[in-house]
């Protein structure tokens, strides 16, 4: 079986697997509901207080400026379920019998989880936008910068959810536990990264390094640019995105190495 044929077969297999399992529809509904709920909460908050020019962005991305969002967690769970389902129900062996190339299978699984996570992000965005548009007398749109300025953080949000999904997949393959993987995704920005940041030396390089840690890079990806921010801001966001991508790619690579060394 040629590598290309194997990849094509593996992608078909994973797409139909995703489409024929119940939890996919549940996660899609959860993502849309989370997007709508986040938007509703921000709209309600905006009625009582001025939440600034980034209010609209916060509303449609579910307040993911901390580097963590409910939809990101849902995507991590989606990725974890793909890997955990393989391990728990023997699906990995079935897949390897159909497509006897481990690299092609992992690549296909990563691609499909990435696509599925993007779909979850878009579903949550659409639900959130619908709530904002329909919210009576909301001022978020009026206070927000224009669509051109918002394009980069919105793309960053979709990319962030995609990376959450892929991280969930890779961590589950490494830790052999969906619960541990999702817990780690949640605990990283809330506990582990602040701890790590506190031990970095208080120097210029330490500050640069701290800004490239996964949660900090994630919050930069979805942050609204300051007024009059130009190309340097976009470059900084791209560097943050690259750092996050590198971290998740390292996880996938580790999972690939571990998978290649052991019996299925």
């Amino acid at each position: 079986m040629s590598p290309l044929a194997a990849l094509s077969a593996a992608v078909r297999l994973e797409v139909v697997r995703l489409a024929t399992v119940r939890s996919s529809a549940v996660l899609l509904a959860l993502a849309a509901a989370a997007g709508a709920a986040g938007a509703a909460a921000l709209c309600a908050l905006a009625e009582r207080a001025d939440i600034g020019r980034s209010g609209l962005l916060e509303a449609v991305t579910g307040g993911s400026a901390s580097g963590l969002s409910v939809v990101g967690i849902a995507a991590a769970l989606a990725g974890a379920l793909v890997a955990a389902g393989d391990a728990r129900h023997g699906a990995e062996r079935t897949a390897l019998v159909l497509v006897p190339r481990r690299g092609a299978l992992l690549t296909a699984r990563t691609v499909v989880v990435a696509g599925w996570s993007a779909a979850l992000a878009v579903a949550s965005l659409l639900a959130a936008v619908a709530v904002v548009v329909l919210w009576p007398q909301q001022q978020l749109v009026a206070a927000s910068p224009g669509p051109v300025v918002l394009a980069a953080p919105l793309l960053g949000y979709v990319g962030l959810v995609v990376l959450h999904g892929v991280a969930g997949l890779a961590l589950t393959a490494l830790l052999r536990s969906a619960v541990a993987a999702v817990s780690l995704v949640v605990a990283w920005p809330l506990v582990l990264e602040p701890l790590l940041g506190s031990v970095l030396p208080p120097s210029r390089w330490g500050a640069v390094l701290e800004g490239l840690l996964p949660a900090a890079a994630a919050s930069r990806l979805v942050a609204a640019p300051p007024v009059a921010a130009g190309t340097p801001w976009l470059v900084g966001s791209a560097v943050a995105g690259g750092a996050l991508l590198a971290a998740v790619s390292a996880l996938v690579l580790l999972a690939a190495v571990r998978g290649a060394r052991r019996d299925a």
Partner: peptide, 27 residues
């Protein structure tokens, strides 16, 4: 054609869905 573990089935997928996924992978 290979049968290794007949119980290697995802509980959230119907019998037909299971075979559909295999058919997709097998072309």
């Amino acid at each position: 054609g290979v049968v290794l573990d007949p119980r290697a089935l995802h509980p959230g997928r119907t019998a037909r869905g299971h075979l559909r996924s295999l058919a997709a992978g097998a072309g």
